[in-house]
């Protein structure tokens, strides 16, 4: 069930649900002689049950109906994240149609994600529309900071949840002015573990690591660094005061993900931010070209 609104996850957008079709097989030698396997895709039993009633011989007076022993193995072969991925695909199609380039910012709490976004909004808002989705367990503080910087923002409170999922983001998209195109920044819940597993429909995950954290974070939280396409090493203005080993950090991240790109920035002083903006411009252009080719 949806943790945002309690809705029952009505499917948005077209998604190919039927590719997950399953087959029914009967097993365990439970067939009386002369009965074959059910290898068709019709349900093996065509009659209805009261809830809780079953055919495993434990029914009324232990009556066992030959041929009706229904203990069976059903092959499912479905990705547990399949539903999230369907929502993510719908979000991605919607963003592409609107010409919006979306980035999903992930990091531990306190790496400076919000400050980074506030700085980027101040520097870029004159050139292109920017919208923001903020994810936190509680409070609307971050969305308020983003709005004060001049961009529309939707706050998602996940409550006890540890990550944003694609369904929540789909709802947030409903409330944002996407028709303008431009950029969408999604600031995920501060957590280097869980958000790695959930595709939100973004073009890229951007992992933010600040130099006040250990340089071995990529080794400690490899899933996140494997899922990201760009690592922003933030708060580099503090390096003179710290023992952070930048080279080693880069080496560790490349061990986990040989293709990850890397930029050093300071959201506070603005150092390195132009290189990040160029990266966004390049990747957004590449995405536009790819979308056009796909049409």
């Amino acid at each position: 069930m949806c943790t945002v609104c309690g809705c029952m996850e009505a499917k948005e957008g077209a998604s190919d649900h039927d590719r997950d079709h399953a087959h029914a097989h009967a097993h365990d030698g439970a067939h009386p002689r002369g009965y074959g396997h059910h290898h068709h895709d019709h349900p093996p039993h065509e009659h209805a049950h009261e809830q809780g009633a079953s055919h495993d011989g434990g029914g009324l007076a232990g009556v066992h109906v030959p041929g009706m022993n229904a203990r069976r193995i059903i092959e499912i072969e479905r990705n547990i994240l399949g539903k999230n991925n369907e929502y993510a695909a719908a979000n991605r199609a919607r963003l592409a149609a609107a010409g919006v380039f979306a980035l999903n910012f992930v990091s531990s709490p306190g790496s400076g994600k919000t400050t980074l976004l506030v700085r980027a909004i101040a520097d870029l808002k004159a050139d292109c529309p920017i919208a923001v989705i903020e994810g936190d367990q509680q409070t609307a503080n971050d969305a308020e900071r983003i709005r004060a910087a001049g961009a529309p923002a939707i706050q998602i409170n996940t409550g006890k949840g540890c990550h944003l999922d694609a369904h929540m983001v789909g709802h947030a998209l409903d409330a944002l002015p996407l028709d303008l195109g431009g950029l969408l920044f999604i600031e995920n819940v501060g957590n280097l573990v869980c958000p790695a597993a959930f595709d939100l429909g973004e073009a890229h995950k951007v992992v933010v690591l600040s130099v006040t954290e250990g340089e071995d974070k990529p080794l400690k939280y490899p899933d996140m660094f494997a899922a990201a396409d760009l690592m922003l090493i933030n708060k580099v203005d503090l390096i003179p005061h710290l023992d952070f080993d930048l080279e080693r950090c880069v080496e560790y991240a490349r061990r986990i993900n040989p293709r990850i790109e890397m930029l050093t920035v300071s959201a506070r002083t603005g150092e390195g931010m132009p290189a990040f903006y160029s990266w966004i411009a390049r990747r957004a252009e590449a995405a536009r070209v790819a979308n056009r080719a796909a049409e």
Binding site: A22, A24, P43, P44, H45, H49, Q51, G52, A53, S54, A70, I74, I76, R78, I80, L81, G82, K83, N84, G161, C162, H163, D165, V193, C194, A197, F198
Partner: peptide
Amino acid sequence: MHEMALCEGVLDIIAEEATRQRFA
């Protein structure tokens, strides 16, 4: 604890299959 969300995903799959393949 995203395992909790993933287990809910497993239950969603089970509920869908129970309707489609009729098991109790």
